[in-house]
Design a binder for these strands. Structure first.
Length: 426
RNA sequence: GGAGCGUUGGUAGAGUGGUAAUACAGCGGAUUGCUAAUCCGUCAUCGCGAAUAACGAUGCAGAGGUUCGAGUCCUCUACGCUCCGCCA
């Protein structure tokens, strides 16, 4: 959520900034008109409240003769007050709906552009492997090694689900363990969190009101399924007033994640790239209000996820995401993409975002600064690792001519020391 | 699923239907002095405003209701604790 006073005082700048995200300038004017309308009603209804309070309070000291008259007057003012309040609450709801739909301001560093075609590759790390044998894609590798039950599970659980087994199942868990260890060593608090959520955290995080179609909803219990631990971690301290000494808060949250993928019809329908339920270890940071501080943490989160891909020995590229491809909450976003040999391209494994105050305002997540003033926190998030998607580049990059898959040294301790996995490993 | 008891500021904690005590922490100021103490003020949100001024409104888990007036009475909801039942 944006600061309405800032919008009122810097209207032209705000219009220009939000236009970079494709947000129309007229909507800023409409918001301000609604704001001024709301304030007028606040002023008039507060004047009536004041009058009502004065009359009520005078009853205590009034004589028995005076009372009936004052009570009658107070009743009358009370009714006018109630009418004014009703008008106000309509306008207030309209105003809140409008401001909840305003995206965050993009950073000066983010390139302008309408969609993902304008994203900029900042740099690439690692060699794209040259195979001297015909490569298999991850689906063929799973079939060859008896690593999955893709066809059977589709009958049980439907499209875009997966079941993996044997060494690949062990690998899925091992990668999360490796990532959790790295995050713990970097000072993160490890958490396993629920995937069920009430509605309010979805607004706090910024999924709602933008993407209701993407979210599983269970009407019997009025409960939603979370698409990421970010959602839960962002609301964990909702409505709290922290102390500056408590910051930064670093969380590594593990949870199953649920996405309807309603807008992805026809995309990545086979295999492990895009599924309705997956496991993610998420990096989440709450820091103080200093822009330099959130920039520092953004770079730190990026560095951690790069190390993770390097430990897994996956070649990757770092994208600076353009204004039009960023989600509404984001100020600045990097995507990390790992090389997928069978598709001859890089595919997203991590998304690293600085949200600045936008989520904290929705979440009412504040702290008392060392100067005694109350301020909003800033939040950042990045994938730690998401499986099974990360297994796709992993098994394809590390595949051998016989269909077995090499385990990089950094991961071997989590795989019981195995250097290779697969049917043909002796 | 059932029963009982709870939910008050950053924290702790009072509050017979009539302006939310008090203490601690934090911040600001003053004083004395010497490694701190004492005193005063402030301490959430919003409106009007140039204002971090004055004034006013709101805020006691949330939403309704009764009343001239609700932290206090009534209804519903959420959450917590204790117990019963069920259970990986």
């Amino acid at each position: 959520m944006l600061d309405i006073k800032f919008i009122a005082e810097n209207t032209e700048w705000v219009k220009k900034s939000l236009a970079r995200k494709g947000f129309p300038a007229e909507k800023v004017d409409e918001l301000l008109a609604k704001y001024y309308e709301m304030n007028k009603l606040k002023t008039s209804s507060q004047a009536l409240a004041e009058e009502k309070n004065k009359l009520s309070n005078s009853i205590k000291t009034a004589t028995a003769d005076e009372r009936p008259l004052i009570i009658a007057q107070s009743k009358q003012v009370g009714e006018r007050f109630k009418a004014e309040q009703e008008k106000l609450s309509v306008v207030q709801t309209e105003f809140e709906d409008m401001i909840l739909r305003m995206p965050n301001y993009p950073s000066a560093e983010s390139p302008d552009g309408p969609d993902d075609s304008a994203n900029v590759v900042r740099y690439k790390v690692g060699e794209i492997p040259q195979f001297d044998f015909p490569i298999r894609d991850h689906i063929e590798l799973m079939a060859l090694n008896d690593w999955s039950e893709m066809e059977r599970i589709a009958h049980v659980s439907g499209a875009r689900t997966y079941a993996i087994k044997n060494d690949l199942a062990q690998l899925e868990i091992a990668i999360h363990m490796m990532v959790m260890d790295k995050l713990r060593q970097n000072g993160f608090t490890l958490l396993t969190v629920p995937s069920i959520t009430k509605e309010k955290p979805l607004f706090n995080q910024g999924y709602l009101p933008f993407a209701r179609d993407e979210i599983y909803y269970m009407p019997a219990d009025d409960i939603y399924l979370s698409g990421t631990a970010e959602l839960i971690l962002n609301s964990l301290h909702a409505d709290e007033l922290l102390n500056e000494a408590d910051l930064p808060i670093l969380y590594a949250g593990f949870s199953p994640c649920y996405r309807r993928e309603a807008g992805a019809a026809g995309k990545d329908t086979r295999g492990l790239i895009r599924v309705h339920q997956f496991f993610k270890t998420e990096q989440f940071v709450i820091c103080n209000n200093d822009p330099a501080e959130s920039e520092k943490w953004h770079q730190k989160l990026l560095k951690i996820s790069e190390e993770i891909l390097q430990d897994l020995e996956l070649p990757y590229q770092v994208l600076e995401v353009c204004t039009g491809d960023m989600g509404a909450p984001k100020y600045r976003q990097y995507d990390l993409e790992a090389w997928v040999p069978s598709q001859n391209c890089y595919r997203e494994t991590h998304s690293c975002s600085n949200i600045t105050e936008w989520q904290a305002r929705r979440t009412n997540l504040r702290y008392r600064g060392n100067d005694g003033k109350v301020k909003y926190c800033q939040t950042l998030n990045n994938t730690g690792i998401a499986t099974p998607r990360a297994l796709v580049p992993f098994v394809e990059i590390h595949q051998q001519a016989d269909g077995s898959v090499k385990i990089p040294p950094k991961l071997q301790p989590y795989m019981g020391g195995k250097k290779f996995i697969g049917k043909n490993v002796r």
